[in-house]
Design a protein around this nucleic acid. Structure first.
Lengths: 340, 340
DNA sequence: TTGAAAGCGATACCAG
DNA sequence: CTGGTATCGCTTTCAA
């Protein structure tokens, strides 16, 4: 019952041509006479032939596959970007091999190793700080890379994203304009997340320039979960240091803060402003609407696909850095600082 | 600068053994004398050798890769299950190749074709209704499958999940017990989603058994987005048919309904009860807390990995059906029906 | 426990 | 435009 599957050879025999011709008919149809092409196509359909990816990859030294490592697929943060990346790749008949690192550098290296071993023609990662081994591997295998979610004009690698530091600054700027002076921060772990680090430093720098300070006592780091953010917020309140605004490193964190504030009877935005980051669709409909940063996920995914495909076709060489906008979206969780 | 990468042959030469022995040292270490093994490992490290996946797949007729097709990765619904699936596979050194069908049967067939062509040793899908071509392909290539998110004792294919009809029934049962008689439904498109279909029919059947009716005028279908659910809810209200509860086919839909209700000044749960489905972490912290169904995503992912790995090792044959619980979680968006 | 050698299924170069 | 054939890097009998 399990007859062996048809191979190129079978198709060739059935169509009365050589395997070379069948291969061409599939990969460069215009290089084959129409008559032969038709015979071949008929044979393919009749036999239900499907090319064998591994054999193809081995012979052509191309896998038609792009790898991506994201910190997590557990929440929707990276989903949209991945979705559009996938879409762009699919159009060119490329497949996406997706892995996650759990915000952990060693796991990332492992995943990279696996992906490369499986065979990828290009790689997408989030942020620019990665295990040096990852870059080394990619380099050895001459695999083009592009880092998303960041923009750094100095970067040694291609990147498509936005300036996280600037975004941090922009949020701080907005809050200051609203009269806030005591600002707290709930961020992802900075040690494992260069985007978070940059944003916080953007905030810190701007406050300093304005003669204010981002007090270390008002900065918390936690996992990217609603519950952890709740705890972080409670801790912030318990610390006794007053603050009138909390900048959160993600909508999920902001949700946690919002919910904890609600439980503590702190009214938002009257006595506390909260800002998020990501602009998750699911958060847009909440009440109160979350003030947040809209991340250009769609563009990042789309351009990343375009860029890598160009690299593979050798139409593009060298490093490519693209800066995109990340806009502040003002909704209802933020407002003027309370007057005392 | 781009020297060719080391191959098995290089390692063999460096270690002074044959390629066969190196291959064994990698794949069945116990079949190689310790001394040779050490020499080989040293050579591997020294050369920075990494096996070539395609060559390996071609020769061994195994790809160490499992494919999965989910309806969408755009929101977090399937993320958790995928996460645990991935985790289980990784432990066994398997990789997950993820594709999405956008709830579309033809796209699904295409994705399946691509996955199979790329080479997969097992397949995971959501729901049991799939393009017949998909099952045909899997069968021809003797690729084991398991369907998640459903449990059907009659299914011709392995499945690990819960009885959607029963879950629908349970929600209806709960609402009736709360005194609700006029129940509306906002569901995903039933034509493209067997889980949705089963849930709605579970609801319908239970209502009928209780001498009530699920009025067609009170059933809406829409895309899985907050905005579309808002529109569906508004439409439901505008239709003029009274209802005191809305069963939504997903937390995202419930959020949309909730937000629309808020805009219309309908108080929840006082004058309207709303239930969701999925128990997304992000929804747990909302206020009011969403009454919903907790989907056993973790278990489905984990068991799916275990099952497929067993199939591949030939330790498991035949169809395997596993029923898991999906619990009703009562929070604050539901309550007693308003008395008139 | 090891090695020699025959594939695995395609691609791509070189002739014709 | 087409065919013959070496080759890609590894696994897997079969013998030794």
């Amino acid at each position: 019952m399990n007859e062996t599957l048809p191979t190129l050879q079978d198709v060739a025999t059935a169509a009365g041509v050589s395997t070379a011709t069948v291969s061409r008919a599939i990969n460069q149809p215009d290089k084959v006479k129409e008559k032969s092409r038709n015979k071949i196509n008929d044979a393919i359909v009749k036999l239900g032939y499907a090319p064998h990816g591994a054999a193809r990859a081995l012979a052509s030294r191309r896998t038609q596959t792009i790898g991506a490592i994201v910190p997590t697929i557990d929440n929707g943060i990276f989903a949209k970007g991945i979705h559009y990346l996938q879409r762009g790749l699919k159009e060119a008949n490329y497949t996406l091999l997706l892995a996650s690192s759990n915000y952990n550098s060693d796991e990332e290296l492992n995943e990279a190793r696996t992906l490369i071993s499986r065979g990828i023609d290009g790689m997408v990662m989030i942020g620019e700080t990665h295990h040096p081994g990852v870059y080394e591997l990619l380099n050895r295998h001459s695999i083009p890379v592009v880092n998303l979610w960041i923009y750094d004009p100095q970067s040694k690698y291609s990147c498509i994203g936005f300036d996280n530091s600037l975004v941090g600054r922009r949020i701080a700027e907005y809050l200051l304009a609203q009269g806030h002076k005591d600002i707290a921060v709930i961020s992802g772990f900075q040690a494992r997340n260069d985007r978070a680090t940059q944003r916080v430093s953007g905030i810190r720098q701007f406050l300093q320039q304005q003669g204010l300070e981002l007090k270390p006592e008002l900065v918390r780091e936690c996992r990217f979960s609603v519950d952890d953010a709740r705890l972080a917020f409670q801790d912030l309140v318990n610390s006794g240091h007053p603050f009138t605004a909390v900048i959160c490193g993600g909508d999920i964190l902001a949700l946690g803060a919002l919910s904890a504030a609600r439980d503590l009877g702190i009214s938002v935005p009257e006595s506390l402003s909260i800002t998020g980051f990501d602009n998750l669709e699911i958060c847009a409909a909440l009440s109160p609407g979350l003030t947040t940063i809209d991340v250009p996920a769609k563009k990042m995914g789309k351009y990343a696909a375009e860029y890598l495909l160009k690299c593979i076709k050798n139409q593009e060489k060298g490093i490519h850095r693209m800066q995109l906008d990340a806009d502040l979206i003002i909704r209802e969780t933020s407002g003027p600082a309370p007057t005392r």
